[in-house]
Design a protein around this nucleic acid. Sequence first.
DNA 1: GTAGGGTTAG
Length: 718
Amino acid sequence: MRSAIKSLLAPNPAANFEAYVSKCLSLLKTIPITQGTVLHGHLIKIGTSSERYLSVKLLIMYLTCRKPAEARQVAKEFDPFDLVVQNCFINASLQSGELDKARKLFDEMPERNEVSWTSLISGFMKAGRVNESLLYFWRNPFQNVVSWTAVISGFVQNGLMFEALSMFLELCQSEIRPNEVTFTSVLKACSETGEFRLGMSLLGLIIKTGNEHKLSVSNSLITLFLRMGEMDSSRRVFDSMEKRDVVSWTAILDMYVENDDLIEARRIFDGMPQRNEVSWSAMISRYSQSGHPEEALNLFHKMVRKGKFINVSCLSSVINALTTVKALQAGMNIHGHTVKIGMERDVYISSSLIDLYCKCGQTSDGRFLFNSVAEKNVVTWNSMIGGYGLNGQMEEANSLFEAMPSPNNVSWSALIAGYLDDTQFDKVFELFNQMLLLGEWPNKSTFSSLLCACATTASLEKGKNLHGKAIKLGIQSDVFVGTALTDMYAKSGDVEGACKVFNRMPQINEFTWTVMIQGLAESGFAIEALELFDKMDSRNPPNELMLSSILFACSHSGLVSRGLQYFRTFETKLNGSHYTCLVDMLSRAGRLEEAEELIESMPVEPEPYALAALLSGCQRHKNEELAEKTAKKLWRAAERDSGGYVMLSNLYASAGRWKDVLEVRKLMKEKGLKKNGGCSWIELKNQVHSFHSGDGAHSQSIEIYVVLDLLMYEMLPV
DNA sequence: GTAGGGTTAG
């Protein structure tokens, strides 16, 4: 870039004046303002600046870089009513979001050409003011492909796919012929709405009008086929292209990402003949979204080292990757950088930063940034609401939600997920009902939260109801929803229902396996759980929960040798609770010495539960000597881990040693330890009423006790 | 006037 400028700053323009001017023109679009000013000075010196095209370009440059004084200086050289210049000013106002100023300029023009009209139409569309844009469109005396395309693409940009498509149909009925730009927009509308059949019939029209080999059309077709799942067709379009640009390469890169083949995607990326910042951001974001934050960060470092231009997309992906690895300090450095380059208030950047702070537990820092963002969008709000939810600050989350101008289903889901995390299940159901009443559509996330609430509260009826709703919405076969459904049925005691859902799922992941194995194991279907575990794809290495489940299954069904076999296979992966399961298994089987040995030799600190399991084994198999020894250990463990006291107290209670129970309780009270209170609940008229032991009584507890007394009275024998 | 990349909820 620098050398290009230098060559233009030679004392005399090149012999070929035309070529010199066109070089200046192409460069003026891309060079930074400082160098543009230098070039401008030089052009004045050598007397070339009054060349009309150059002046227009210089004007545009100053306008887009918000240098109004310089822009006016250049504009002076023109006739004040020059249409091109006036259009430039309108465009500049539109770009900087001053729509009303643009409209005023437009209204004051003595005459207008098609560019003036189209600028206004597309400017209002870009700003999301669709209706005003349409007003200009219908009044436009110069209706042509460009203005039609401006409206169609405007609809697409505003997510109004149906309107875009019907506008296109109307265009086809007029005598105006769509061109490649029109097709590109409509193809995008088809890809985004899943209107694949329409896309295919468009293909016929595209071929008939001879647009199939246009670069932008081919690029859109690659994406359309990709969304249709027609990878081969995507590849065929790409292979048959005469010319490919960065967009084509980046689009085909996505094909491999979609196939979950990041290795091949990376190979394409490395072999791309040309890469721009979009290709880099694409690869970085893909790594970040597919759960490979380290790779994303590596690539980012490489990009920085290469001195590539870092744009907003790239930064937001990087912040997202840093959030995944909880790298708060590095994220703060990036934050500092964005402040320096003035991008801090960009919605993408600020939303990701808010998310970063919240996910690292710094909600107040997140809130500080949130407050400083002037133009928040729905994502900014949702990040903050979700952030409060993650940190259990439900009051803040709720008040922010209430203050929100127009919550969408993500906002609702975020709030619901927060209450779920905070185990306020009645709030979860209440919000869901409110959401439905307000006509907001629940989505996959909403369903997974709701189903999780059902699973935890064992609300089978509610869960079945949700299952029906999910089928109606056509999302029952989604992995997340299916997994949540399986879990709900299993945890509500309907193992058969869980199996039915599980067997019908078109694709399953690690979590699906986990909930199904766990469901079987905890419902007493030990053999089935183990069978399923053995059947599992070896590409899914067992996670901690699965191992817990199978050890639990072995322990509760007396499958000791099988349990020990698993123990030996996965010994390196076991944690404290797995060892507790094993100790429990051996103790139940009466193999007390082995259990004790295991406690002595385990590589992790034994949980109090492990000692308690051994102790209860001793009681069952009448080994008082070992019991006494273990009880002493449990007392010592209790000093470190309050859970031990609870175990002790329960054990004494089950042995009827009430004096010892009191002793332990007293000790707990002295140390300020509190046992988690019990809780029970019932469902009435779609509302969950929960009852807690100790404090936190039900709001209608007085009435409830009155009715209870009456019932007791009725039940008294006459 | 157009195509490829970005932020939030599970």
